[in-house]
Design a protein around this nucleic acid. Structure first.
Lengths: 266, 266
DNA sequence: TATTTTTATATTGTCTGACCAATTAGCCGG
DNA sequence: CCGGCTAATTGGTCAGACAATATAAAAATA
């Protein structure tokens, strides 16, 4: 066995390592699906700063404390801090230049549709306006997507959607398996459009949908059975009837919006 | 004044600093509007890796060389390299875990609608399929946005759009001022929807539009005068006629698509 | 002996602290 | 009003310790 490596304990420094840093277990740390924040210090800090920016703790245009102060007051290294800032910058939320410092950009430049940002957003109980905006966007894109899907879907797509639908009927949205099947249904539907841009957009929106689902469950709003609505969309797509698919999808989303608003009024 | 800090010149190391690194001036470095890549090493590397991933030099699932090898072979520090990776990770393009290394995620998880990613995409002469997908998305969202804008626009919105339109008519799309007015026109239009999610989405798409504009100019396709089309959209919105605005916007985009395809056939 | 479980180990990202370089906003003097 | 300085801040570098984990080796079990 080797002894503690004879070399040198350089500054005598605190022998921490990084065992259990306060930041790691800091917030609720919304652990939705592949949230890769798992324990990385820079990720945790990016989360924290991101949420603070979204909440308005740091306003647009405001300069946040410099690297040295921030990192030391948070008790982390500059590198970890800088990596966190890089993440925020990649999402358009901050901008840093020498001498000026790092400042929060104007809200219009934030990538609100970034899945991660959307996740952060929902950890702050977003405003009704924002939820409304999101539903409006869904109401624009998803019916159109359903239309395209009806024209372009393959047999494999139909089989996959049929399967997801069966699981949903069996499990309901109360179980994780049921919700997963729901997501899978929508994902295949969008995939059937053969449109990469739509796929990318809706994978963002998926985060939002997942949240509203949980939101409704939390406020245990008596949500109607979603299967019949989905069934109608499916039938239209299987039949290749674009305009029917569009119409059914629109009504499906309107129902979801109604339920969500009902839950909000709780 | 203090002398060079008596301590120790640790390893005698190369006295480089970072005067003029090859990466900085490496590629064409698409300097579109507020591209904040300006000279930052990590930004330049992120750009390079990002483009390589989009081009397929690094395939999905592939593990790229480890930090030590990469940074040393690129002749940059590990910190700079890591910050670059953090940027890519924030855009969903890579995922890094201890022992496994950093690997390229599956294409469906890339944030293709991130303005920066979109910019990278266009530096690689994107596939016809992708351009088509993008126009399809515009065809879905922008007419709907025009509809909403017609219902919600304020007097200030109208004034701003009128002004942009005048500048466009005077300058044409050949001058930068003209193109800027074009962008401004669309931006105010989207802003008039009062929908944050739409704003965020279209600020992404703006990058794409800017590219196709340059693309058409490059292949000097005889593009028709865009002002009459814009004028019609404007009139409909000013009149508060949603469905007319929708229809005019749709035809405007179809024209742009036609021109782009004509340029592609060159 | 074959199979499963446990333990080592090598590899890799993570984090640290201290340092120097490049940039530039804002001040000061001409 | 302009041009050059100065101080403050991010950008970049380095060398090393730490933590996690996939894989291989060893041990226990069937």
């Amino acid at each position: 066995m080797k002894k503690p490596s004879a070399t040198l304990p350089p500054t005598e420094g605190r022998l921490k390592g990084s065992a259990a840093h306060p930041l790691r277990s800091d917030p609720t740390l919304s652990q939705t699906p592949p949230y890769q924040n798992q324990g990385r210090l820079h990720g945790a800090l990016a989360y924290r700063l991101g949420v603070d920016i979204l909440k308005g703790v740091y306003q647009s245009g405001e300069t946040l404390p410099n690297e040295i102060d921030s990192s030391s007051s948070l008790d982390i290294s500059r590198s970890a801090y800088r990596e966190a800032i890089r993440i925020l910058a990649a999402k358009g939320m901050v901008e840093s230049r020498p001498k000026t410092g790092t400042r929060v950009t104007e809200r219009a430049r934030w990538n609100l549709l970034d899945p991660e940002v959307l996740g952060w957003m929902f950890d702050t109980e977003p405003s009704q306006d924002f939820i409304k905006a999101l539903f409006e966007l869904r109401l624009i894109t998803e019916p159109a997507a359903a239309d395209l899907a009806a024209q372009r879907r393959t047999d494999a797509d139909i089989a996959s959607m049929r399967n997801s639908l069966d699981i949903m009927a069996r499990e309901t949205l109360q179980t994780e398996a049921g919700r997963k099947a729901d997501r899978e249904f929508h994902r295949t539907l969008i995939g059937a459009t053969q449109n990469e841009a739509l796929v990318s957009l809706s994978s963002s929106i998926e985060a939002a949908v997942a949240w509203t689902t949980r939101y409704k469950a939390r406020h245990n709003a008596l949500t109607r059975d979603p299967v019949p609505d989905h069934e109608r969309v499916f039938d239209a797509i299987a039949a290749g009837d674009g305009s029917a698919a569009r119409w059914c999808m629109e009504s499906l989303i309107r129902m979801a919006l109604q339920d969500t608003q009902k839950a909000a009024a709780h």
